[in-house]
């Protein structure tokens, strides 16, 4: 059996399909609608990846310029949003390499596995069993965002795409050009890292 020809691949008609088609057919003014639609999401994604506000702004602008430049190449074989985030992630990675914030390190499962009498939990702490609204506070949200910032980039990218932006495993793998297995490993470690930070926060409260 031969692979289907590129031209025969089914087009994905997502919510941006008509708008992207309109732009690609010459209605370039409508690109502003695309920017309006994704500006805030991309700004926050970039801020979480770059940390520095000026870098995040540069990244968003560069992403939209790249999207405009390459939109004609978009084949509607994926959701437009996934393609957009692929460009955004790649732009953030390039920006980060030039940035001073780049604490790269591997997170190993062992460092999160509770061992020894002092670490082995014997009961669910309040922060994990009270209703969510009883636990949430602005200070806690600041702590969560701060903890996300301290994650090494490759783990941060995955957790931001999965747990904040809401992409599924397959989409995240496609955006980052990783295997799904790799996405799952990174996500689990990133979540365990954040869990430890939250645990520390609540224990020292």
């Amino acid at each position: 059996m031969t692979a289907p020809k590129r031209a025969n691949r089914k087009k994905i008609k997502d919510k941006d399909f008509e708008l992207v088609r309109a732009i690609n057919s010459g209605q370039f003014d409508r690109f502003a609608d695309l920017v309006k639609s994704y500006e805030q999401k991309l700004y926050n994604f970039s801020l979480r990846m770059c940390r520095d506000a000026a870098d995040a702004e540069d990244t968003v602008q560069e992403t939209f310029l790249n999207v405009f430049r390459y939109l004609k190449d978009f084949r509607y074989e994926t959701k437009f949003k996934n393609w957009l985030y692929r460009i955004a992630a790649s732009t953030c990675i390039k920006k980060r390499r030039k940035s001073k914030f780049a604490p790269q390190r591997e997170l190993s499962l062992d460092e999160f596995y509770p061992q020894g009498e002092a670490e082995v939990p014997q009961q669910v702490p309040d922060w994990a069993q009270l209703p969510l609204d009883k636990v949430l506070s602005n200070e806690l949200l600041d702590k969560i965002n701060e903890a996300i910032f301290t994650l090494p980039e490759k783990y941060r990218l995955v957790i931001v795409l999965r747990d904040i932006e809401g992409f599924d495993t397959a989409e995240t793998a496609q955006i980052l050009n990783l295997s799904e297995a790799n996405v799952k490993v990174r996500l689990h470690r990133a979540r365990l890292y954040l869990r430890d930070r939250l645990k520390g926060y609540f224990e020292n409260e």
């Binding site: 949430l136 949200l141 996300i148 979540r191 869990r195 939250l198």
Partner: peptide, 17 residues
């Protein structure tokens, strides 16, 4: 406990805003 704290971590992360 690991499962419950991990679940809550995900819930909180989704609220990051």
């Amino acid at each position: 406990v690991c499962l419950q704290t991990l679940k809550r971590t995900i819930d909180l992360c989704k609220q990051a805003g």
